[in-house]
Amino acid sequence: MELREDTRYTYAVARIRALETRSLNLEKIQRIVDAGDASTAWRETAGWHLLPKGELSPENTQTDLEKFLIEEIRCTNNLFSSLSNDPELTNLFFLKYDFHNLKILLKISPESLDGMVNLGLVPIEKLKESVIERNFRELPKLLQESIREILELVKIDTNLLYGRLDMVDIILDKKMFDLIFRTLKRHPAPSCSFLNMLFQTEVDICNLNICRRFKRLRRNRDFLNEALLPGGKLALKFLLEKYENNEYAPLNEFINFQIATFKLQLNNLYESTIYTAFGLEPLVAFLKKREKDAKMIRMIILAKLQGLAPKAIWGEINTINE
């Protein structure tokens, strides 16, 4: 892989290198897991936070935790956006929140804001208004066309609201990755090849997991064809053939091997950012690490709240790391 140095990122990378030391390492995770209870575990996360760390109230520990972690992710996203010189590329990492909000708006009532998360490119109120009024002129250009297409698709498929709700999610997920790859294709930034590899690997891992889940759920090939995401390195036709011609055990073996390979590639990709002196790559690696850390903190503290033993918590941590 060719990694060119992008000198626009001199300050950004230096800043990120300073902040990277706050990330969770094995020792810190061990301390959080070994903490006696949820509030002690939360106290052990000191140093990871970019914002002043609040205290978890004993009555609403879970709500407080979710709120604090979302605020941390928001702060990380803002930092990521402010340090980036390619807003069109950085926006790709926030699209998932907009698409999540869109799913809520399409699946439930557009009147409600429950379950929506204000981390996307478009504020939830604005997105809600746009969907209700079918007016997307005020939305970012990146989203305008996609949302219009999605609404057309959802409108055409009358089955969607009657038992095929998963299709809303499937259409939106596919559209999101389609939008990401289209943007990367036309963008001239040197980091595009890195991002392309990153998203491609993510799509491949996701597609392999979908194949395995479909086999376990005994879904048919046509539905799998609809659910697989576009843009991965593994050809969809190849995956479909594998799915059709194999029983669960050999398919699972193949998927395990492929996922291990792709995860190794992903790790190598993140590790390569250590050697990138200037560019968007270290910022992306930092963002992804922060997201993973937040997920891990949430998991450990919720597991503590549920009374899980440290050994069981380590088992769950391994599933995240796998």
């Binding site: 439930i108 379950g115 949430r298």
Partner: peptide
């Protein structure tokens, strides 16, 4: 434990 709260909410909010 593994799925973020908002995703879990969105996934389970309307039964299929």
């Amino acid at each position: 434990l593994v799925i973020p709260g908002y995703v879990l909410y969105e996934s389970c909010i309307r039964p299929g």
